[in-house]
């Protein structure tokens, strides 16, 4: 098993730093994932998610810092670490002109699975991904959601202990997206560790634990409900004469205003909440307190931290290089 880091820790990232030329993609990223844990790496485009996952998958070495999968260096092909790892990049390259079944067989041969083991596992994976009836369909003729599920099945054939998924739900319709989450819950229940990256804040609550990645390092980490519970502002649903309400809200203490199904969703600082509520009720508006969400938390915390690009110049500082690195992978 190589060096043992800490009991129960299956994935370790310690002080990861990486730059592409002058662009700093990772700036000291550290996190750990336990067996059977579903960990979400949440961040916008350019936050460093892809670079982190590529390092953990052993596809590149970090400029600085340590990555370990079950105590082994993922970039060391001789360590046997590849058999422990499943990795699904954003644009997973399946063979478009091969059928669903042929793609599975191809990946089984890469991992030298014997015929009986392959038959057993592919049947199970085709069943849980509901792809069995499309077994003869060429991969290029699958919908986005089905293609992702096939890619996931291929990444799982060799029964990895750690599964790394880079934005598996991006561009996938809601039903397929919920299917994917359901599959992941099944795997972690069996003890697999899963790291899933997503730019969507509303997916944070689906994870056991999340790290908010911003500017190449973690801004926050913890169980989503605990993190949201620590949000210090107040979220209101305001219903009534919205024009009047909006004029009233142009004062201090209001963090954000967004539409919400014909009402307004208003985020205010904790101290301003009482007075703002009273003013709005004075206008005859109906005011109800809502649960804050992850996006509220992210904005409150990331606001003072500087953005992942230079505002004054408006030129993307990160992401462009990261995308280039991705394209290189093909």
């Amino acid at each position: 098993m190589g060096e043992v880091v800490e009991p129960g820790v299956v994935l370790l990232a310690e002080g990861l730093e990486h730059s592409f030329g002058a662009v700093r993609a990772l700036a000291g990223l550290s996190f750990r994932v336990a067996a059977g844990e579903l960990y979400g790496l949440i961040g916008a485009d350019g936050a460093g998610k892809t670079t982190a996952l590529r390092i953990l998958a052993g596809l590149m070495r970090p400029g600085r810092g340590t990555a370990r999968i079950a105590g082994k260096d993922p970039a060391d092909a001789r360590s046997g670490v590849r058999e422990l790892l499943g990795y699904m990049p954003q644009r997973y390259s399946l063979y478009g002109d091969l059928s669903v079944g042929e793609n599975l067989r191809f990946f089984a041969e890469l991992f030298c699975l014997d015929r009986r083991v392959f038959a057993e596992r592919s049947e199970r994976l085709l069943g849980i991904t509901r792809l069995a009836r499309f077994i003869d369909r060429p991969a290029e003729k699958l919908s986005g959601g089905m293609y992702k599920k096939l890619a996931l099945a291929c990444a799982l054939l060799h029964r990895p202990e750690v599964l790394l998924l880079d934005e598996p739900t991006n561009g996938v319709d809601p039903v397929s997206r919920l299917d994917l989450w359901e599959l992941l819950y099944g795997f972690v229940a069996e003890g697999m560790s899963v790291v899933v990256s997503t730019p969507y804040m509303d997916e944070a609550e689906r994870c056991h634990r999340v790290g908010l990645l911003h500017g190449g390092r973690l801004l926050l980490e913890g169980a989503p409900e605990r993190l949201v519970g620590g949000f210090e502002g107040v979220v209101l649903r305001v219903t009534g004469d919205l024009e009047k309400v909006e004029r009233q809200l142009e004062g201090a203490g209001v963090i954000a205003v967004a539409p919400l199904g014909g009402s307004l969703r208003v985020v205010v600082g904790a101290e301003a909440a009482g007075p703002v509520e009273a003013e709005l009720r004075g206008l005859g508006a109906e005011v109800e307190r809502l649960r804050p969400n992850f996006e509220d938390l992210f904005l409150a915390r990331a606001g003072g931290e500087g953005l992942p690009f230079d505002r004054a110049q408006g030129v993307r500082a990160e992401g462009a290089e990261e995308q280039r690195a991705q394209r290189g992978e093909g």
């Binding site: 916008a44 485009d45 991006n170 730019p199 967004a258 996006e295």
Partner: peptide, 16 residues
């Protein structure tokens, strides 16, 4: 799709 939350809120404010 893929836009950071601060930009998303700004965009929404412009649309509104």
């Amino acid at each position: 799709a893929g836009v950071d939350p601060a930009s998303r809120r700004e965009f929404l404010a412009l649309v509104r």
